[in-house]
Design a protein around this nucleic acid. Structure first.
Lengths: 166, 166
DNA sequence: GTTATTGCAAATGATTTGCACAAGG
DNA sequence: CCTTGTGCAAATCATTTGCAATAAC
C-alpha cells in the first residue's frame, strides 16, 4: 500500500470524524495490496483468507467510503456489478478496454482522447466532469491464431469469464 | 415508426419463427412513436395509456428481443437500470453525454473519435467490437447564468432527475 | 394441434438498511 | 460515555424465470 494512499485515508478519516477499525484496515490492506481491479465479491473472497472477519455490509460500506475519499474509482462494466479501480491516484484519467474473450480489463491512457473529449463536450455547450471510454474488444491473437493469452491466464487464475449479460 | 424498423422486425420474426402478438405490436408502437431514450419503467408508463395491456415480464422479454434484432441499443448510464436507445438504425455509432443537472441525454457522433478509438484498440492488440464514450457533464449555462434549459425542460416534463447513484 | 407467448407470482442477485450490540477516542 | 462502526437479517429494486393457461399459425 502506497504511502500516498495511507496519507489520504488518514486525512479523510480525520476530516470526517470517522474511526480506525480493524475491519477497515483489513479491507484497505486487501485492496491496495495489488493494483488490480476487483468486484466486491472478489474482494470478499480475498478477505476470507484474512484473520480479520468482516461482514458484507461493512465491506460495501467501506467501499463507498473509499470512493468518497477518492481512493477508489467505481467503474461500470455493464455486467451487473460494480468494479472498483484502485489505480485512480496514479492515473487520474484512464479508460478501459474489456476483452470479451476472457473479461480481462486493460487500462490505457491517451492524451489525444482527452483533448478530443474536451472539445466535443464544449462544442455541445457543457462542462465536462467525467469521461469514460469503454471499449469492448476481442483479442486479435485469438482470432488469428486461435488462442488468447488473457483467456489462458484467466483460466489459470480462475478469473471472471465473459460473464452473463444481465 | 419507420418503414425500416417494421421491415427489420418482420424479417427477424420470420427468421426466428416468432409470432406477431398484440402485446408486441403495442410495445413496438410505443417505442418507435418517438426517438427518445427510455427505461423499461418509462416505457411501462407510456403503455399504461394504451388499450392493450401487457405484463412487465412481456415488456422485458420484448425489449431483449428488439435488442437482439438490432432495433434497440442497450446503454448503461450507471444509474442501476438499462436505458434503451431507439436511434441505433439511423446512427449506428453514437455516443452519449449525460447532463448531471437534469439527467438529460444528448447523443453525438464524431468521426475523429471513432478513428482514434480504432487506433487505440489496435495498438493494444485487440479487435474492436463496441465502443462507448460516456461523458458526464454539467450545463455551461447553468454555471454561468444560473439556469440550465434542460433542467427547466426536465421539470416541465417531469423527466428523470439527476438520479440516485446505486 | 403444435409451438410460441403471456401473465402471474416467486426467484434472483447485487447492494442497502434498520436495529441492537460492540467498541473507538 | 458518547458517538460511530459492526453484524445480522430483512428489505430493495431492476430484472428474470417457472409454470399453467392462451393464443398464433
Amino acid at each position: 500500500m502506497t504511502l500516498e494512499v495511507r496519507k489520504r485515508l488518514n486525512a479523510f478519516i480525520r476530516m470526517k470524524g470517522l474511526r480506525h477499525t480493524p475491519q477497515r484496515n483489513a479491507i484497505v490492506e486487501a485492496i491496495f495490496a495489488s493494483d488490480e481491479h476487483f468486484t466486491p465479491d472478489e474482494l470478499w473472497e480475498k478477505l476470507r483468507g484474512t484473520d480479520t472477519r468482516t461482514s458484507r455490509a461493512t465491506l460495501y460500506r467501506t467501499l463507498s467510503l473509499l470512493s468518497e475519499a477518492g481512493l477508489l474509482q467505481e467503474i461500470d462494466l455493464g455486467d451487473g456489478q460494480t468494479t472498483y479501480d484502485p489505480n485512480f491516484l496514479e492515473k487520474p484519467a484512464h479508460n478501459h478496454l474489456v476483452c470479451v474473450d476472457c473479461g480481462k480489463i486493460l487500462e490505457f491512457e491517451d492524451d489525444h482522447l482527452e483533448v478530443l473529449n474536451e472539445c466535443i463536450t464544449r462544442r455541445l455547450g457543457f462542462h465536462s466532469i467525467k469521461q469514460t471510454l469503454r471499449i469492448e474488444a476481442c483479442c486479435e491473437e485469438l482470432r488469428t491464431e486461435g488462442r488468447c493469452p488473457n483467456l489462458i491466464q484467466a483460466r489459470l487464475k480462475r478469473q471472471r469469464l465473459p460473464g452473463k449479460k444481465r
